[in-house]
Every structure is written in C-alpha cells, then in structure tokens.
C-alpha cells in the first residue's frame, strides 16, 4: 500500500506492506536510525517518536497508521545547528551511557517540557516510567530533564514543522 508520512517536516511517499511497523519504516525505509527497536512489547520505549505531537512507541504502531500524519524523531530535535535544551541537558548531566534509550527518552522529555515547563523530579520520573534505561539508574536522566527545564525550555521551538491537523487515522 502507498503511504505518505511527514517526518521531521519532510514528506515521504512509499509503497509498504500493510504490516510494516512504524519503527522499521523509519529505520529501514527512510534510514532514520536514531530511533531504536528494543523489545517488541511496548515496554522499553527505545522506539519512542512523536505521532502528531504525541509520544508513541513506534514498535507497536503500523507505518500505515502514520499516513497523512506527522512524525517527529530525534533527528529533528536539533534546529539550525542549535541543540535542543534537552539534548544539551543529557550531555551536561551525563544522562546517557550506551545511548540506546536516549533518543526515546529525549523525545518524551521534550514532550513533557512542552506541556509542563517546570516538572518536579517525581513528574519527570512518571513521564519516563514507560521507558527503560539499563545504564544510568535514571538519576542523571532526571537531572538532564531538570537541566533542560532550567535552561531555556521556554524558548524551544517544535521539533516538527507542525501543521494544525486533526488525527484522521
């Protein structure tokens, strides 16, 4: 089937199998390998991307479900050579080690800060509680999100060039 998906502001049209998972569409069809696959069961969150501005686990969404919609991935976080404060926070606070969970964590963190610019530690923990990190014990991820909150989350612009559109899936 033919689908058209906007990813990080760029429109892609591809012929895909109806069963193709969104994560494999992004990684194998578009070569956007920043989002990772980790578990198949929606537990780990290494595959978190935004679908119409909402974090989803792309291992449990079909590429077809994204047709006509907007996807934002880690590759879209940096704008005009300027790192997102979340990306800066992860570096400043050592919020990553192996880096495998990092893209998904950052996408959730960006979403959290867009909706709650000054989250408490507990609110950060709840926001990332659907995702697993095996390296950091979460401590520095929480600090990284707090760092981003304190360093300009307010000036942040949307990762995807957002077009107002209701979900039509």
């Amino acid at each position: 089937m033919q689908i058209t998906v906007t990813v990080n502001g760029t429109e892609y049209t591809r012929d895909v199998e109806p069963r193709l998972l969104l994560i494999h569409f992004l990684r194998d069809e578009l070569g956007l390998t920043g989002s990772h696959w980790g578990c198949d069961t929606s537990n780990c969150g290494a595959c978190v991307v935004w679908l119409d501005r909402t974090p989803v686990k792309s291992c449990t969404a079909l590429a077809a479900m994204a047709s006509g919609r907007e996807v934002a991935t880690v590759e879209g976080l940096e704008k005009d050579g300027q790192l997102d404060p979340v990306q800066q926070g992860f570096v400043a606070c050592h919020g990553l080690q192996c880096g495998f969970c990092t893209p998904g964590m950052m996408m959730t963190a960006r979403w959290l800060l867009d909706h709650n610019p000054d989250p408490s530690e507990q609110e950060v923990r709840e926001a990332i509680s659907g995702q697993i990190c095996r390296c950091t014990g979460y401590e520095n991820i929480v600090r990284a999100v707090r760092w981003a909150s304190e360093h300009g989350a307010a000036e942040h612009r949307e990762p995807a060039q957002h077009v107002e559109a209701e979900v039509t899936a």
């Binding site: 390998t33 920043g34 590759e75 790192l83 570096v91 990553l96 880096g99």
Partner: peptide
C-alpha cells in the same frame, strides 16, 4: 562531558542494526 555524546544525542550512533 563525554566526547561520544555528540553523536548519541543526535541519533547518529552506529549500532549493529
């Protein structure tokens, strides 16, 4: 700060897959 973070935070790591 870690030198390797430059690629990881941009989704530009290269894992086997």
């Amino acid at each position: 700060e870690r030198k390797e973070d430059v690629r990881f935070i941009r989704g530009h790591g290269t894992y086997v897959d």
